Amino acid sequence: MPAVMPLADFNRNQSAVISRLKETAEPLYLTRNGKSAVVVMDAEAIDRAISRRQQEHEREMDVYRGLLAGYQEAQEGKVFETGDVFV
């Protein structure tokens, strides 16, 4: 379950909360009037998360490009008979 804290509590205890964010590397949801207002996260943790997402995206795009290349080859008639592939 994500950590949640009122914005007023964060403002009163910023140093302690920031230290905890650095230790946990987890996001903290800040609320205003009982509703989510913003999310804060340690800078290094968010950098790692963004980098990981970019790597995942690149892997997904590699798969997509491979599928597209195979589809284009099939459209151009560059196909093999099943017996020629499974020897």
Rank of each mutant, 00 (worst) to 15 (best):
L67P: 02
D42W: 01
D42E: 12
D42M: 08
V38P: 00
Q55L: 07
E60N: 03
Q54R: 07
M61V: 12
E60D: 04
S36E: 13
E44N: 12
D42K: 03
E44T: 15
A45L: 09
M61P: 05
H57C: 05
R53Y: 09
L67G: 06
G66S: 14
S51R: 09
D62F: 08
A43C: 08
A43F: 05
R65G: 01
L67S: 03
S51K: 08
R59N: 08
Q54L: 15
M61E: 06
R52K: 14
I46P: 00
Q54E: 10
L68W: 13
R53H: 02
M41A: 01
R48S: 10
D47I: 10
Y64M: 00
R59P: 02
L68R: 15
R52H: 15
R53N: 11
S36F: 12
Y64E: 00
V38R: 10
V38G: 05
A43P: 00
E60V: 07
R65C: 02
R52L: 11
R48H: 12
I46G: 03
E56P: 01
E44F: 13
V39E: 05
R52W: 01
R65T: 14
L68Y: 05
A43L: 11
L67H: 02
Y64P: 00
D62K: 04
R65E: 10
V39L: 05
R52Y: 12
V63T: 09
Q54Y: 15
M61H: 09
H57L: 11
S36T: 13
A43N: 07
G66H: 03
Q55N: 13
